[in-house]
Design a protein around this nucleic acid. Structure first.
Lengths: 340, 340
DNA sequence: TTGTACGCGTTATCAT
DNA sequence: ATGATAACGCGTACAA
């Protein structure tokens, strides 16, 4: 009674206000909300009904302080240069967020180039997050190195030789290997490989799949038709040009970006796909949908990788044991571009 | 001395630890860090030196609780369906994050369709953020309606008739108007308009610019060559088909997505750009770079819009007065596709 | 200029 | 099953 007008004026209720109004103690209210500790079913319902009616919501900062838990996770995104990489990272992010939301976690985003760890340090030092997702792995990754020096749980999307890293990835190796095997078994003779920067582990894995796919079929590697570290469209075009002088009858592209250029360049030269040259891509995105000819490719569920990464991270935060490596399914879509 | 080993064991220092080690009080340390309140320059330096050496960082949750401030802002992103919208929102996000980082704020991401306000409610109710950025405005926007009912500061990217909304936008209206004027002054006769959903204010503004651009030049509106609410590629193709039967000599596309389809369709039909038909787009992204013919378009600095949105929001959070409407510059790029 | 003491809103420990 | 009470770590009036 004596404090009723005070309660009216406050715009944000606290558990103490709730407790007073209900004639119980603050701890009882806390227990009713959290579900932890013993509490009578009747009082529990009474509290729940009241806070629902009055729209009471616990203050996240206070909870955070008391529990040493932020209910935030960070996702580290690369600075995306080209249109082709963007969908992957953005969709990953979306998937991670979906899982975070369901678990009452929020997703905090950090964009950095591959070298600057300052933003991470700030987050860790200030304890703004409970864990982190790395969306890209680099060789001698400075983020990994830093995060390992801290106690904070983290997962990385991608593949690594470092066996005590928790990673989530599509099975790029297995996918590429099976794709190459399939192409060869269908009668393709010479499969060339066009790839970008070998500083990214995903590219290393794809190339390894290509190599072992050939090997499995008893085909010898021909370094003359293998191009890696292609950095731009001009280099890709030049590589295609050179391949056309060989007996190559199929080009395996490391990703959509390269595939895009290959298809455009062949079209410009009036070279028929698949008659004169077959084309396949190790990654499928909507980019490939715009071509006159449908492209054989590996298809991965990008959103799923984000979801999985978040799930695994939340398990780690909860203190559960998690597998070091999670490999997600791939799908091989055989299309016109490799028709024999 | 008596507490030295306790200090060693703790992995996270507090201002009390720092205070004790330096023989000062906790409030002095607090003042040294925040810069608020009077403090001797010498002690200030002594504290700063110590915390730098010992790598002390204030606990964000505790600070948040004490100040009723989270140092977080949220950015509300739409569920992006197609490749064409993604760069805009992603780049906006990146711009916002850049400014946030510099101001020691973190960016929290929320993806929703245009209807579900649950994720926003949770954030606001739990006081996890100090403000919000809406990246898209809808007609009868439920987010706007909800946020207005709260006390939380927010800005919206886009344009609205609601004059007490704080908005940031490119000058879509002015840009389109000038583009149309320019085309007409160059000798184009009939400018058709191909647009998508008129439930988005950006589309409404662009169309208004088109209309007034014609009007300014004394050209009468011809509803027969205006298509809005085109929902997919098939509808765009059909519209182009119909336009080819009229005396239209220029197609103004509301965005890249539509422009993409228009260019492809004209190419398929073997119709020359710009000889038989000129084409321009109200928005430029890298998508347009892939065409054999360069496209006349409006160019906006997308990252800048994200930056600006964040700047304005931070000003609001700081309690400063901000302009209700911020319009960002556009650039008209005249290219081959409209050459006379 | 500096220190004291209390508040921020919750959770957790220990009684009862 | 429930209630006091003490943390959690920082900011800040107020006092000195």
């Amino acid at each position: 009674m004596e404090s009723s007008n005070k309660d009216q004026l406050k715009e944000n209720l606290t558990i103490h206000d709730v407790a007073k109004a209900l004639g119980v103690s603050a701890s009882t209210v806390s227990r009713a909300i959290s579900g932890k500790g013993r509490i009578g079913e009747e009082t529990r319902q009474r509290v729940l009904a009241y806070i629902s009616e009055k729209s009471f919501y616990p203050n996240a900062s206070a909870r955070s302080l008391a529990q040493s838990k932020t209910y935030n996770i960070a996702i580290i995104m690369p600075e995306v240069k080209d249109l082709v990489d963007m969908p992957f990272f953005h969709t990953c992010m979306h998937g991670a967020e979906e899982v975070a939301q369901v678990n009452d976690y929020d997703l905090l985003i950090v964009t950095t180039d591959g070298t600057n760890i300052k933003p991470l340090e700030r987050m860790v030092n200030n304890r703004k997050v409970d864990g982190m997702i790395l969306t890209r792995l680099y060789k001698d990754d400075v983020f990994v190195k830093y995060l390992k020096s801290t106690e904070i749980p983290f997962v990385a999307i991608g593949n690594s030789d470092d066996k005590d890293l928790v990673t989530i990835d599509h099975d790029n190796y297995g996918g590429c290997r099976e794709l190459v095997s399939l192409l060869l078994s269908k009668g393709v003779e010479k499969v060339a490989y066009l790839g970008g920067g070998m500083d990214q582990t995903v590219n290393i894995r794809r190339f390894a799949g290509y190599k072992d796919g050939l090997e499995n079929a008893g085909v010898k590697l021909d370094n003359g038709i293998i191009y890696t570290n292609l950095a731009n469209k001009i280099q890709v075009a030049k590589a295609v040009e050179e391949l056309l002088k060989t007996n190559t009858d199929c080009i395996l592209c490391q990703d959509d970006y390269i595939c895009d250029e290959v298809v455009h360049h062949l079209a410009e030269k009036g070279i028929s796909i698949p008659k004169r040259m077959k084309v396949a891509s190790c990654h499928h995105s909507k980019l490939l949908d715009n071509f006159p000819v449908t492209i054989t490719s590996l298809k991965f569920d990008t959103m799923e990788i984000g979801r999985k990464a978040c799930q695994v991270l939340l398990s780690m935060i909860a203190g559960d044991e998690v597998p070091k490596e999670t490999l997600l399914e791939y799908e091989i879509n055989l299309k016109e571009s490799t028709k024999m």
